[in-house]
Design a protein around this nucleic acid. Structure first.
Lengths: 243, 243
DNA sequence: TTATATTAGTGTATGATACACACTAATCAT
DNA sequence: ATGATTAGTGTGTATCATACACTAATATAA
């Protein structure tokens, strides 16, 4: 009955496993590496897009991958994800959510890597210009509906993000993170349509959203193009009710 | 622009971070430990209960904790959780789901520990007798509605399990994992009532469950007590429709 | 054998929500 | 003034959620 050891995961003396290694089979306590990967998504060109980085070396050389990096010893997982986000897009204060942790041995042929996957949503207006100069051709946005060959298990990870995003769209206010501060109802509807990948009825959509009271009319209108101008709304987080 | 290193998480040569330590600030690559914790839940005595282990040493000596242990270098996270489950309850083929990964520095005062939390559901009939002899008083079942003082951030973790369990109850067939193969509709209703912690209307509950077609009448009846016997049903996973 | 206690099992009416569907309103350009 | 373009609006129908009370079948005890 190995419960004694299991109960007190780090042994009786509070030392790390390495310090106890001479008591045990050392391989038993060989440690996996921990990374965070961040799936960054935005709406561009009426499309749901994800940021990918082109790998320059083995393994999966030349394939595209989700950005990620090691968790430093003194930062939380979320801090690591935020750092990653900042390094890749220059943005802070972005919606960030932990998704799932992938840790199969063999998912990385080099060594055992356990990766905690976060996903981030940002509106592309804030993204304008920021890091636009960074077109060294090794980082780019791709449509989630038309992805290039992906390294590691990253295809599976993006599928999973999409499933979760669709699920949360129905009962949370997550969609607002993909829009600027002010937006028209049609723009909001387009967010839903692009993510759910199907048309929605305009009247029913407006009725449903407006009935929840999560939108505030700014009074302003969006004058653009040769047609009737649309009211601009703002998300009212105070009325954080369920959809 | 640190993208080069970030992109290729393990460096250009495929070696582990330790092997590269002389190139870098070593502390940057000091590695956290990774454990899995398994929140095992069952229905006993008309109550939702969780398995806890009493700590025998610092930190949190004498407090109760969720069972957990290191992830071995060659096993997947799920395999580690299954192993943990097997060690604590002797059961295999139990419902197991990854919940969330907790990794704040400081959540364990000894060293940096990132823990991937799984939760497991089991029916207490299978649990009968198994490991019943194991009453060394350092492992026991507790009502989730009346928990003892818990070590680490384990209170938060159990809260989180309960929230997720309640959410999934509404739109999945997760509840069946807490019952034996055959059960009456009243027993199923009781599972829902105990987890949601409120009374449900008998007629509406039966109507809803039966209308989904996920139950199969076994033909048998449960003869027990001095009252009308109840039909016994079986879960039909073929009709894995949504609730 | 009859009465009693106990839980199983059943239906209907009402309100709320989801869905399908087509025309008018306001602006810009010509 | 006209045409092109997108914004904005309401109603009827079907489906689903909810509230609610009595009869049925068994075991036990008188």
């Amino acid at each position: 009955m190995e419960r004694m050891e299991e109960q007190d995961k780090l042994g009786q003396n509070g030392q790390t496993p390495e310090a106890q290694a001479h008591h045990y089979d050392a391989s038993k306590y060989e440690r996996p590496s921990v990374t965070v990967d961040v799936v960054m998504m935005t709406l561009r060109q009426r499309d749901l897009q994800v940021l990918l980085i082109k790998r320059r070396s083995w393994p999966y050389e030349g394939m595209w991958a989700i950005p990620g990096g090691f968790v430093n010893i003194d930062e939380s997982l979320e801090e690591a994800a935020k750092r990653e986000l900042q390094e890749e897009t220059g943005l802070q204060d972005v919606y960030l959510e932990q998704l799932y942790t992938f840790g199969d041995p063999g998912r990385d042929p080099r060594t055992r890597v356990i990766t905690v996957v976060y996903f981030a949503l940002m509106d592309c207006e804030r993204l304008q210009g920021v890091r636009a100069a960074d077109d060294a051709a090794d980082v780019d946005w791709f449509s989630v509906y038309n992805l290039p060959p992906l390294a590691f298990d990253h295809g599976k990870i993006i599928d999973y993000v999409l499933t979760r995003l669709r699920g949360k769209l129905e009962y949370t206010t997550i969609a607002f993170n993909l829009l600027a501060e002010q937006f028209t109802l049609r723009e909001l509807q387009r967010v839903y349509e692009i993510i759910l990948h199907r048309r929605l009825d305009k009247r029913n959509f407006r009725k449903k959203i407006l009935s929840t009271g999560i939108l505030e009319d700014t009074g302003a209108k969006k004058m653009e193009g040769t047609h009737r101008p649309a009211r601009l709304y703002r998300f009212n987080p105070a009325a954080e009710t369920k959809l």
